[in-house]
Lab assay of single mutants.
Amino acid sequence: TFVALYDYESRTETDLSFKKGERLQIVNNTEGDWWLAHSLTTGQTGYIPSNYVAP
Rank of each mutant, 00 (worst) to 15 (best):
N51T: 12
G46Q: 00
A4H: 00
S39G: 02
W34L: 09
T1P: 07
T1Y: 15
F18C: 03
T42S: 12
I48A: 03
S39H: 10
P55H: 10
D33Q: 12
V27H: 08
T45I: 13
G32D: 13
E13C: 09
A54I: 14
G43L: 07
Y6L: 09
Q25D: 10
E31D: 15
S10F: 03
S39A: 04
T14D: 12
P49Y: 06
V53W: 04
S39E: 01
A54L: 10
Y47Q: 06
G21F: 04
N28E: 11
F18E: 00
V53R: 01
L5G: 02
Y52Q: 05
P49R: 06
K20Q: 11
P49Q: 06
T14W: 15
Y52P: 02
T12N: 15
T14V: 11
K20F: 05
A37M: 11
G43F: 07
S10C: 06
Q44K: 15
W34I: 10
V53D: 02
W34M: 14
Y52D: 01
Y52L: 12
E22M: 02
N51M: 10
W34F: 12
W34T: 08
E9K: 09
T45G: 05
I26C: 06
E22Q: 05
D7L: 02
L5P: 02
Y52C: 07
T41V: 14
E22Y: 02
S10A: 15
G46Y: 01
I48G: 00
L40T: 07
G32M: 11
R23Q: 15
S10R: 10
T14R: 14
E31H: 14
Y8K: 02
G32S: 14
E13M: 09
D7E: 05
L40W: 08
R11Y: 10
T1H: 12
N28T: 10
D15E: 15
Y8T: 01
A54S: 12
A37F: 02
F2T: 04
G46F: 02
V53Y: 04
L40G: 03
Y52N: 04
S17V: 04
V3C: 05
I48Y: 01
T30Q: 12
E31V: 12
T1D: 10
Y6G: 05
D15V: 11
Q44P: 00
Y8D: 00
E9M: 11
Q25A: 09
S50A: 12
H38W: 10
D33R: 11
R11D: 10
T42I: 01
K19P: 01
A54F: 09
S17E: 05
I26S: 05
L36C: 11
V53M: 07
A54M: 13
T42Y: 03
Q25N: 10
G21C: 06
L24Y: 02
Q25S: 09
T45K: 09
P49E: 02
F2W: 15
P55D: 08
D33E: 13
R11H: 12
K19T: 08
Q44L: 14
G43I: 01
T12K: 14
G21L: 02
Y8E: 00
A37I: 04
D7R: 02
E31M: 15
N51K: 13
L24A: 00
V3E: 07
R11P: 08
Y47T: 05
P49G: 03
V27W: 14
D7M: 03
S50V: 08
T1Q: 10
R23H: 15
T12I: 10
E9W: 09
R23D: 08
T30E: 11
G32Q: 13
T42G: 04
F18P: 00
Y6A: 10
A54T: 13
R23K: 15
E22R: 00
G43V: 02
A54K: 12
D15R: 11
Y6K: 09
S50P: 08
F2D: 00
A37V: 14
Q44S: 09
K19V: 10
D7G: 05
A37Q: 00
T41P: 03
T12V: 11
E22L: 00
P55T: 09
G46E: 00
